[in-house]
Design a protein around this nucleic acid. Structure first.
Lengths: 137, 137
DNA sequence: TTCATTTCTAGAGTTAACTCGAAGTCTATA
DNA sequence: TATAGACTTCGAGTTAACTCTAGAAATGAA
């Protein structure tokens, strides 16, 4: 079975080897095998697991909570409910993050328009005293 | 003109007074007026400006960069182009954040399905050796 | 008037997530 | 055989963004 070195994995996941060792130190990678000399050997399935970890990080989950999930995975079927609940909770969180980010986008777009019209007229004063019609707010 | 105390503003924006003072210390609020005794007096327009600051923070912009923008605002029309460019750049950044977050959502949804089916059958083994058809990946 | 509450500043402390340096080992090539 | 480069651990250092403490001063209610 093909294995990968820490720097190969780091490159693939756009992380550094330092970061991967830090994750290991924090208990996120109990499944990684080692050579007799202690060098980490990453399998394809380990890279997949790291992608899940990156996914959870992307939802803003702190590393200590991700570790709980990893521990549940090691404990087997008795923790299926916790793991399901966790992902359902994450889903709700990402939904509200998307909502928030869409609101942010609307405001940013409004500002783009605001500065575009200001640039066109040469001054921000165009937006004072109702000198221009505002299409949205 | 109605004014607000620091704790009133903190409450409205879901921040703490500590955080607002920290923003002020970092130069994000050069426009806030003070009483003769030094107490901050927030106007409606100050709250609006703080909402823009929160919006920029929501895009992941660090406070030092937000300060640059605040400084440009104080400099007047000569910085309109920089400010326009900045918001256009933020727009591109939020677009890619939305894209990323949508991908994250897909993976999370997949995991919800994965654990739902595992729970239904009582074991995660259902997902080993093609025992179940995977609708997406 | 006394007591609680709120404000202020300066500066110290906290936390998460890296990020790196030092010192040592192992392997592959010149 | 030596020497460059990748790997290891341990522990220290960094950074951003708060978060709080201390001590002083003002304000408002009982």
């Amino acid at each position: 079975m093909k294995t990968y070195s820490i720097s190969e994995v780091a490159k693939e996941l756009n992380l550094t080897a330092y970061t991967l060792r830090y994750y290991d130190k924090e208990g996120l990678m109990p499944f990684i095998e080692r050579t007799a000399r202690g060098t980490r050997l990453f399998k394809e399935s380990d890279i997949d697991a790291l992608k899940i970890i990156e996914c959870l990080k992307a939802t803003g989950m702190p590393i200590k909570e991700i570790k709980n999930f990893i521990d549940w995975c090691s404990e087997g079927d008795s923790t299926l409910q916790q793991r399901f609940d966790m992902f359902m909770e994450r889903k709700a969180i990402v939904e509200s993050q998307l909502e928030e980010l869409n609101k942010t986008m609307e405001l940013i777009k409004h500002k783009c328009w605001y500065y575009k019209t200001a640039l066109d007229s040469g001054t921000e004063d165009i937006h004072k005293n109702n000198k221009i019609e505002i299409p949205f707010n």
